[in-house]
C-alpha cells in the first residue's frame, strides 16, 4: 500500500517549518515518528499534499531538568523516555507508560509530541499528561503559548493546537519527595493500545494522609479525562486498600466505555476499577505510603 503522492521537506529550523505550514495551509501536515500518520496515509484515510518532517530541527528532542520541571522535547521517542533515568526517577508514571506503548519497533519511532498531537482515544501518553499536570509549549508564527494538558485535549483526535502550530516541548512540574506516580494499562491483545489506562499521582503529607491526588483514565471514551471525584475521595485520608478501592470505584463510574468485541460495558467498567486500584497502589507505594 502506497500513500497518495505528496511533496516532502525536512527543514532544519522551526522558522522554516512554520513558514512551510503557513505557505501550504490545509494541504500540509507535520511528520514526527510517522506511526499514526503513515498508516493513515497508506490506507488513504489521510492524503496530505505536503509533509513537513520535524526530524532535522535541532533542540526538538532531549530530556532535561530545570527549575522545578522536567522539559521533554516533542521529538523524544518512547524508547528514549523509557530509557531515561530522569524520567524514571522524576516522573515514574511516564516511564511506565512509555515502556508499554506498542512494541519495541514502535517505541523506536513514535514520539511524545506526535502521540499528544494525534490524541488517539486509546493512546497512553495523554492520560499521563493529565495526571502530571503537564504544560505544552506550542510555537506558531504569532509566537509561543503554553497550554495546560487539561485545555490541550479537547475531544476525540482533537487538540487545541492550530494547524499552523508546532508542539515543541512538554513541561512537567516536578514531584517533591513524598509524591509518587504510576501508570497501568490493560493492553489490547492485538494492537497493544490501552483498553483502559490509568495514571495516578499522589502526594502524601507528613502524617501519611493524601495531600492531593491527580487521577486520569484513558481508553474508555472519546478522550482521556481527570476524575475529580476519585481525587477528592483520597484527599485527607490515609490511602488504605479500602480508600483506594472506593476511589477506583469512582473512576469506574466516571468512564463511558462502548460495548465492542473486547467486552461489554460492565466488563470494561470492571477493568477500569481493577487498573485504577493497581495504579493507585503503586503510586502510593512510590510516595512512600
Amino acid at each position: 500500500m502506497y500513500p497518495a503522492s505528496f511533496s516532502y521537506s525536512s527543514p532544519t529550523s522551526l522558522d522554516d517549518a512554520l513558514a512551510l505550514l503557513a505557505e501550504h495551509g490545509e494541504d500540509a501536515k507535520l511528520l514526527a515518528g510517522g506511526h499514526s500518520l503513515l498508516p493513515l496515509m497508506k490506507l488513504r484515510f489521510a492524503q496530505p499534499r505536503y509533509l513537513v518532517d520535524l526530524r532535522r530541527i535541532a533542540n526538538l528532542s532531549g530530556i532535561e531538568r530545570s527549575a522545578g520541571e522536567l522539559k521533554i522535547g516533542a521529538m523524544s521517542t518512547y524508547a528514549a523516555l523509557a530509557a531515561s533515568d530522569l524520567v524514571r526517577t522524576l516522573v515514574p508514571m511516564l516511564a511506565d507508560a512509555a515502556a508499554q506503548i506498542g512494541d519495541p519497533q514502535v517505541r523506536n519511532r513514535g514520539t511524545i509530541g506526535g502521540s499528544l498531537a494525534h490524541a488517539d482515544p486509546a493512546a497512553d501518553l495523554p492520560t499521563v499528561m493529565l495526571a502530571a499536570d503537564a504544560q505544552m509549549a506550542v510555537v506558531g508564527r504569532r509566537g509561543t503559548r503554553v497550554i495546560p494538558a487539561q485545555a490541550f485535549f479537547v475531544g476525540m483526535l482533537t487538540t487545541s493546537l492550530a494547524p499552523d502550530e508546532v508542539l515543541t516541548e512538554i513541561r512537567i512540574p516536578l514531584a517533591d519527595a513524598r509524591e509518587g506516580s504510576a501508570y497501568d494499562k490493560c493492553r489490547h491483545p492485538a494492537s497493544r493500545f490501552a483498553l483502559v489506562g490509568v495514571a495516578a499521582s499522589i502526594r502524601l503529607a507528613a502524617d501519611g494522609t493524601v495531600l492531593h491526588a491527580r487521577i486520569a483514565v484513558g481508553g474508555m471514551g472519546p478522550m482521556a479525562v481527570r476524575v475529580a471525584g476519585a481525587e477528592a475521595a483520597l484527599k485527607g485520608h490515609a490511602p488504605t486498600a479500602e480508600v483506594r478501592h472506593a476511589a477506583a470505584a469512582l473512576v469506574a463510574a466516571a468512564v463511558d466505555p462502548q460495548e465492542d468485541l473486547q467486552g461489554t460495558v460492565a466488563y470494561k467498567r470492571n477493568l477500569a476499577q481493577v487498573y485504577a486500584e493497581r495504579a493507585l497502589a503503586s503510586a502510593v507505594h512510590r510516595a512512600g505510603g
Binding site: Y8, S10, L31, G34, H35, L38, P39, D53, R55, A79, D103, P104, Q105, V106, N108, R109
Partner: peptide, 21 residues
C-alpha cells in the same frame, strides 16, 4: 514485524518508514 530492519542501529518496521526519512 516481517519488514524489520535496523535504522541507525534501532529496529524499525520498514513498511512504516518513508525512504526519505
Amino acid at each position: 514485524g516481517a519488514c524489520t530492519v535496523l535504522l541507525d542501529g534501532a529496529s524499525v518496521k520498514s513498511c512504516t518508514v518513508l525512504a526519505v526519512q
